[in-house]
């Protein structure tokens, strides 16, 4: 009995992988698995081989069950969304950097700052980091919205990214600054790498959450 149970477990794990790949919701997967388990365990209890019942391709079987059950099939495509968002953010940063350089030269040529003007460090840092973050978020959202326009629920995902990314990136930058501050802002590769990883982690986490949010509300 334990062998047949483990065989049923294996078959259900295969089916679950297929349903996951199809983007079937967790609740639907659980319901499909519970019904299939009941049937297969009953068959095994009566001496039948569950693997033989499902045929040569349990994956194909799982696909047909999902189709007939009419469960949601929005493929999450997390990897694609994260990749496009990251590339979009980096491209926006490069374009933004070139724009700032050009703008800086125009402004320097056009205006002279009063000699006594002193800009507070926190304000300068806030404008700098805020500007960088805004450009990166805008690039990521636009890249996902238009670069993956054929993907299901992508408009919803882009809207959720616009909502989640600003606070996530702001919090990540604050955490990175706090880390740098705690070490007196050393310019060592380790600390700078850690700061970059924190910001990138926050960015990727918020993007994943945005995609997950839009997939979960798909049905």
């Amino acid at each position: 009995m334990s062998t047949s149970t483990s065989l049923v477990d294996d078959l259900l794990a295969t089916a679950d992988r297929e349903w996951r790949a199809l983007g079937v919701q967790r609740d639907d997967r659980a319901a499909l698995a519970a019904d299939l388990r009941a049937d297969l365990e009953a068959a095994a209890g009566d001496g039948l081989d569950p693997a033989q019942l499902l045929g040569a391709s349990p994956r194909e079987f799982a696909l047909r069950v999902a189709e007939e059950a009419g469960v949601g099939r929005t493929p999450p495509r997390y990897g694609q969304v994260l990749g496009v968002a990251t590339v979009g953010a980096l491209l926006a940063l490069v374009v933004g950097f070139l724009g700032v350089i050009g703008l800086h030269q125009i402004l320097v040529a056009a205006f002279d700052l009063p000699p006594g003007l002193r800009v507070p460090v926190w304000l300068a840092a806030g404008v700098f980091y805020g500007g960088v973050a805004a450009v990166a978020v805008t690039g990521a959202v636009l890249a996902v919205r238009f670069g993956l326009r054929d993907a299901p629920r992508i408009r919803h995902t882009a809207a959720r990214m616009a909502l989640l990314l600003p606070p996530a990136v702001a919090a990540s930058i604050a955490a990175a600054v706090a880390l740098g501050w705690s070490f007196d802002f050393p310019l060592t590769p380790l600390i700078m790498g850690a700061e970059a990883a924190i910001v990138l982690g926050g960015f990727l986490a918020a993007t994943t959450l945005a995609r997950r949010w839009s997939i979960r509300t798909a049905i």
């Binding site: 299939l36 019942l53 045929g55 194909e60 079987f61 069950v65 007939e68 009419g70």
Partner: peptide
């Protein structure tokens, strides 16, 4: 008639 044909149909009838 294979189980692979019957079971998905039952799933549809459930739906």
């Amino acid at each position: 008639v294979s189980y692979g044909t019957v079971y998905p149909l039952i799933t549809r009838l459930h739906r």
